[in-house]
Amino acid sequence: MAIKVVERRPLSLAERTYLPQILAGLKVTWDNMMRPAVTLQYPEERPTIPNGYRGVPTLVRDPNGREKCVSCQLCEFVCPPKAIRITPGEIAPTAANAHVEKAPQEFEINMLRCIYCGLCQEVCPEEAIWLQSQYSMTGTNREMMVNNKAKLYELGGTLPDSHYKWDRKKAEAERQAESGH
């Protein structure tokens, strides 16, 4: 291996007085002073949230307005800090989407516990729970920091869907019923 010996030059007199270095430093800070500030004036100016940002977890509906969550409770089990609490419920047999069978009766995410890990979104078989762009979650008491089902749907809104899994299942079942199986 080639070894390169770097010559250690003794400091010159000017360098030893330390003054030229201080002047150079003053120049650097002066140049910085002349540059515009990079501060984002927060409440008035908001940051642009990039795609894939992991904000507050929310529940979403599909474009037909159907509630996607089937209260399988996988997210409740996977959530590391146990922030999610689901009360499972049945869908009434007379409802249009009775074939889905289950939907959450109540769905609460305690944002004082949530660590924004995104595991709930990862595990959800229905793509019903999403961490979206909401980054500022505040409240003046503990109750306000618990998002209930209504709040979660309000925050989540509707996301595009490419599967329409339950519509396809229903169509399949109907086709099979017609063909007499």
């Binding site: 002073m33 990079v38 004036q41």
Partner: peptide
Amino acid sequence: KASAWIQGRV
């Protein structure tokens, strides 16, 4: 103020 200017703040 001056420290802020030097550090790119307001």
